[in-house]
Design a protein around this nucleic acid. Structure first.
Lengths: 153, 153
DNA sequence: AATGGAAATGGTATTCATTTTCATATAGTG
DNA sequence: CACTATATGAAAATGAATACCATTTCCATT
């Protein structure tokens, strides 16, 4: 577990008290370049020896979400997946359905479109979610990352 | 419960056998201009006297989804909401967070953007979900449709 | 360093949408 | 009408997320 993101961690933290558990959740999140679930984070902190209760993981994630420090998507089961917001502002992602790797995409066009639509319809306080999934070039070329039954090979 | 959508119903049905239950689910769906949950559909068919088992409601909805006859969104709890696809093809919606009323929006720009992004990133089989929510003009002007605690007034 | 109270933690129980199971009923064909 | 693949649905299972609440911890203050 590296610490190269120390200042980013410090920036993300300032919400209430500094506790071992919140630090652990953030550390794991910062080491995950892709979206992870609360359950996975719980397992990862446990594996790291710094156990964090499931309740606290959920609470911390909700707080980070409220503070706009993470982006959230839902997988096909409706489970929430979290990822540290890489550039400080709201982003959308293209996620590979095979390997799970995600990359932020340039979405200014969509933001503008949303504003336009909302205004045209006379809606206030318009919020939006945009999620893109596909098969990345690597997974198309290489052997599939998962078997047909969904089990890792 | 009107029958003005008889031909639409007939077009939507052709999947497996013609049963009382599937007809009932479709009837209720066609009478709902907005998104409804599986649980609500189950309650509605029960209220209509044409009871349909919860299992069958879920099965029918999954079939309709697979056949592309309904659009699906998720509410903030992750619950799936269904709506008959009004123009035969994939649509996106602007949903009022206060009254729940939804309207399809013109999203060709987004479809084009998605294709562009997918191609630029070298992704295949790109799928997307776009959901817009806001407060409609009526709800902004009139008394709010729900109390602060979320209970209907 | 000691204190005290507000904030945070986490094990357990609960909720609730959705899925699975499987015995029974039904559609629709021959 | 009989027969069989298909459909139904009650009950049980699953699983993410939340509520509860006794216990612990942070940290400003003395």
């Amino acid at each position: 577990m590296s610490c190269r993101n120390a200042e980013q961690l410090a920036r993300a933290l300032p919400a209430g008290r500094r506790t071992r558990q919140r630090g652990a959740v953030l550390h794991v999140l910062l080491d995950c370049p892709d979206f992870v679930s609360a359950q996975q984070l719980h397992a990862l902190t446990t594996a790291d020896g710094i156990g964090v209760g499931l309740t606290t993981v959920y609470r911390t994630l909700r707080e980070l979400e409220a503070r706009g420090r993470v982006d959230v998507v839902r997988d096909d089961v409706g489970e929430r997946l979290y990822r540290i917001r890489p550039f400080g502002r709201h982003r959308h992602y293209l996620v590979c359905r095979a390997c799970g790797r995600s990359r932020p995409v340039e979405a200014d066009a969509v933001e503008a479109w949303v504003d336009l639509i909302g205004e045209a319809a006379g809606f206030d306080a318009v919020e939006h979610t945009v999620e893109l999934t596909g098969i990345c070039a690597t997974c198309r070329t290489d052997a599939p990352a998962v078997a047909d039954d969904g089990e890792p090979l």
